[in-house]
Design a protein around this nucleic acid. Sequence first.
DNA 1: AACCTCACG
DNA 2: ACGTACGTGAGGTTC
Length: 470
Amino acid sequence: MKKISSKDQALIAAYLLNPGQRNYEVGDSGSWARLARQLEEKKLMRIFQEIELPLMQVLKNMEGRGIKLDLAWLIDLSKKLGKRIDQLIKQIHKLAGIEFNISSPKQLQEVLFEKLRIPTENLRKNKKSGGVSTAAGELEKMRGLHPIIELIFEYRELTKLKSTYVDPLPELVSKSDHRLHTSYSQTVAATGRLSSSNPNLQNIPIRSDLGNQVRKAFIAEKGNILLSLDYSQIELRIAASLSGDLEMIKIFQHGQDFHSATAARIFGVKEADVTPSQRRDAKTINFSILYGVSAFGLSERSDMQRAEAAEYIKKYYEAFHQLKAYIASLIQLVHKDGLMTNPLGRIRYFPDIHSSNFAIRSAAERQAVNMSIQSLAADIMKMAMIEIEKEIPEANMLLSVHDELVFEVKKDKAGKYAKLIKKIMESVYKLKVPIEADAKIGENWAEMSAIGARLPGRQGSASGGENTKS
DNA sequence: AACCTCACG
DNA sequence: ACGTACGTGAGGTTC
């Protein structure tokens, strides 16, 4: 196993001083004193010593453990996908009246908009090339206009899964221990989040049924079981806490379902009368708010009309008016300082905040608002990981996926570890609202069932079904 | 290498 | 009136 070098440490120091640049210049000698002085000046020494440095060893341990893959399952899945993709190619070519490369957006544009004459006036243009976009959101608008659209959706989903996951993952399994090892990077994300690569295990499919077939390939060693704990709505809890919004705080303190509670306020109904569709819309709006969305953006990404979206956003801020004031104060702050810090002192700079270009300036404002929330969530997760690895190394922490941790534990010990880990995750940092983590176990990463103290009768099902529109 | 698209939180 | 959601990594196509 590789040792942690002083160069790695210097890299982290440079990252903390100015995250968001991709390449950090770290001199070979004599530069450490300068970095240390800068960390002190910017009050980053605590994050450096108490979070990032201890985390390095935790990440090394996780990378070294790897995770077991069901190779036979993936190889079988690859064959099935290959057969179906071949059928789809034939059908699409027949409907188009021409053989072309469906994976080429350029050729697909020609077929859809010139040969088949699908109207383009409602469709977005591509940023750089100026061509008409064939992205999923635009294809969605063409649904029903031509039978080829449905087939293209299926072709895209299947080829994505096959070429990104089903075929490459088995190739990456280690010859020595037959497990799959990712690499975590601690110095990439501008918000302090981790990133995962070679392979990226932070974007394994979960939202579609077929995607879950891929996820099923992630399994535990014989006699063991996968244990997953995820923070429940951590970013919304942080928003409630940082803003001090009494209405949001009340909802979380009463242990209510936040999306339903939001829906009740936006749509003006009793919480018991909230429909699944209303809850889904409220969930979309809750996320949107954290990203600083406009009414137009919200209507683009949901079934809401633009005017509807505007009304719901207005209602939202009426219900949570202290949140609105807090976001405004953050924007004022980033204009004044050109930077944002989270409660632990993590910094991100926003040079674009002074741009005379509206779009660029607005983007910087949204990034600054989001950074103050997302970065605290990232730090809470990092602190939990350090504490868990220190106290319960035998729980075998395998994966960290932003608000979720996956462990591989002896079957008969799962309940015990779940309890211990949950306790740490929920108490490692104090907010003005409770922090909650939900535990699940399963033979694979797709089929997990809740364990531990849960309110009877109202826990999420294992498969999705309440997802926001993607 | 740039572009487009899409997987995840 | 502006222009239109935060953070990532990766595959295929095109130049």
